[in-house]
Design a binder for these strands. Structure first.
Length: 571
RNA sequence: CGGGGCGUGGCGCAGCCUGGUAGCGCGCCUGCUUUGGGAGCAGGAUGUCGGAGGUUCAAAUCCUCUCGCCCCGACCA
């Protein structure tokens, strides 16, 4: 492509709203422009990168035996009412009416549509298994779109759905997709980690996320330093304490005037936070419950919600806390609650002895408190968020370490969560009608683009890996008034193009410095600089965007040499 | 949803407190010079100051409402 004939509007300064590197460089580099919050136009460069990602995904999905389809973005409400998600999905589901007043949604995901398709056209075990995928625009009316393509409202997603006669076969496909995803993200040149994940409002019973490791990631992860265990903190499990401590003290009330927080009580009483137990009052589907975790720990509401088998879990208001405990916020404890509510006790607290809790009275705490002696929990369980340094639950020696990541893909084993309510059934060999076992598998196509930049940039701009680069080679024509320079540039551009290389030919009437700066900003992996001096000596200069070495190569061999190096890195 | 902040030419900003009819840098256009890391000089174009209402002789500036956008939080006793 001749740069003079396309639209690559680079900027010296980025809009002030762009903060993360991927957003800044995509705007500055002329890849992307914002249309509304979380909604973007892809300019020629941006769209080329998206298409490269899509190509890798298609090749690998097809290779894995999946078939591409294209489902509608606009979906009638009936399908969502049938699955129950019309009511469950909440405000992120963009709903609207057509001219006749019929309710529709813009698809944030497509389990309903695919289920409707498969139930009407798949009748027999002979038609299974089946894996259908599409690459399509989704819309989720996010609470808070942010960071450019990292969390948009409109975005491109690859979603795949598989259907199976039994759980074994669904599991086989799950594993196959897991491996396929590893291949896809590897080919994209990403450093990533597959982690165990919560199934969220997609549902199902087994799930892994593929997280690109980078500091600007939205998700918190932990990974073991000894085994391959890694998980989203929403899900991560630490090894519970092995030996319970022995109770040796009697429960005793101590004054703690004005000491509300764990930190205050800890320093006031001279007791470490690890010997304090905090008591949180939640409203679980409207019913108050008390949850106990160690003072230095955080309750994991996702684990708690799952354990309590409730859909709505809210921290109680100050007024509700007063009602349940009889004391202001800051002095709640499991002993002597004003209203008896179920008490859920974290495993760490179960193993603790002689700890400190709130006294359910203003300005007082209890010390020397022990489970069973002083109160009887309703249940024990893992209700806390795993933290840096925790012992790994999966191996004997490892410890968990915190990371941040950008989720670029997730695979789910769904079982019959959708097939049952949606009536996706088939006639099995034994003549019985059975619900299909399902899996679903998503990849954030546009998010991969952002994640790749987060992982591959420097102060001057993007540093694309060859497989995702919008162009593989930049040909910089450094002088506009020199016929030899122009002829040589054109020759190399044409030779490389003929060899099937993606070339961006900077033939603009700009000074050399501008061309160098733009090539760096855009991030093209190979740069051929063609200047007066070099051409006079019969050479051009080759430089990698990710290196500093400048190689002089003879003009007649230049194209073949560069083409070979590019092809070697395509994967 | 809670908190904070911002809307002034394509981009980045100043002006607002203390009302007097809009300015700077980049970019853009023209010309000359320049030409290997975002050139120099000269000339030029571009603004319903987010929108509506109000106060006032006078509003970018003060007041009210509203819309849009960004950041943080939604883990706490």
């Amino acid at each position: 492509m001749r740069m003079s004939q396309t639209l690559i509007p680079t900027l010296k300064e980025a809009p002030s709203e762009a903060e993360v590197p991927s957003h800044v460089f995509m705007v500055r580099g002329g890849y992307l422009r914002k249309v509304a919050a979380g909604i973007y136009s892809f300019l020629p460069l941006g769209w080329k990168v998206v298409k490269k990602v899509e190509k890798i995904i298609r090749e690998e999905m097809d290779r894995a035996g999946a078939s591409e389809v294209f489902l509608p973005a606009v979906i009638p409400a009936e399908l969502w009412q049938e699955s129950g998600r019309w009511d469950q999905y909440g405000a992120q589901l963009l709903r609207f009416k057509d001219r006749k007043g019929g309710d529709f949604v813009i698809g944030p995901t497509h389990e309903e549509v695919i289920s409707a398709l498969v139930r009407s056209d798949v009748r027999s075990w002979r038609q299974l298994p089946l894996n259908l995928y599409q690459i399509q625009t989704k819309f989720r009316d996010e609470l808070r779109p942010r960071a450019g393509l990292m969390r948009g409202r409109e975005f491109i997603m690859k979603d795949a759905y598989s259907f199976h006669v039994d759980e074994n076969d669904a599991n086989r496909e799950y594993k196959k997709m897991y491996d396929t995803y590893q291949r896809i993200f590897t080919r994209c040149g990403l450093a990533f980690r597959a982690v165990e994940a919560d199934t969220g409002n997609i549902g199902g019973s087994l799930s892994h996320e593929f997280q690109v490791l980078t500091e600007t990631g939205e998700d918190a992860l932990v990974a073991c330093d000894a085994c391959d265990y890694a998980a989203n903190v929403e899900q991560a499990v630490a090894r519970p304490p092995a030996d319970p401590q022995t109770a040796s003290e009697q429960c005793q009330r101590v004054p703690t005037p004005g000491q509300h927080t764990i930190a205050e009580v800890s320093s006031f009483l001279g007791v470490p936070q690890t010997r304090l137990v905090k008591t949180l009052i939640y409203l679980a589907d409207g019913q108050p419950v008390a949850v106990l975790v160690r003072g230095d720990r955080a309750v994991n509401e996702i684990k708690l919600r799952r354990a309590l088998e409730v859909t709505e879990l809210l921290l109680a208001t100050d007024a509700a806390v007063r009602e349940v405990t009889g004391a202001p916020v800051g002095f709640a404890g499991p002993v002597g609650l004003k209203i008896q509510v179920p008490i859920y006790c974290d495993l760490e607290v179960q193993a603790l002895a002689d700890f400190v809790v709130g006294a359910n009275a203003p300005d007082a705490h209890l010390k020397g408190v022990n489970v069973d002696n002083d109160f009887k929990p309703t249940a024990f369980g893992d209700y806390r968020t795993a933290a840096e340094g925790d012992a790994c639950a999966r191996c004997a020696t490892g410890h968990l370490h915190a990371h941040r990541g950008i989720e670029v893909g997730q695979v789910f084993f769904l079982g019959t969560k959708y097939s049952r309510p949606m009536g996706v059934t088939f006639l099995d060999v034994d003549g019985l009608e059975k619900p299909a076992q399902m899996g679903c598998y998503g990849i954030g196509v546009t998010r991969i683009v952002a994640a790749a930049i987060e992982q591959n940039h420097d102060k001057d701009g993007i540093v694309w890996p060859v497989p995702l680069a919008p162009y593989e080679v930049a040909v910089l024509e450094l002088q506009q008034d020199d016929d030899n320079v122009i002829a040589t540039s054109k020759r190399i551009y044409e030779e490389l193009s003929a060899a099937g290389i993606d070339v961006l030919y900077d033939d603009r009437d700009e000074r050399a410095g501008v061309k160098f700066k733009d090539a760096d900003l855009i991030g093209i992996p190979f740069r051929i600089a063609i200047g007066r001096k070099g051409v006079a000596e019969g050479v051009v200069e080759l430089k990698r965007r990710n290196g500093t070495e400048v190689r002089k190569i003879r003009i007649p061999e230049a194209s073949a040499l560069v083409a070979a190096e590019v092809i070697a890195e395509r994967r």
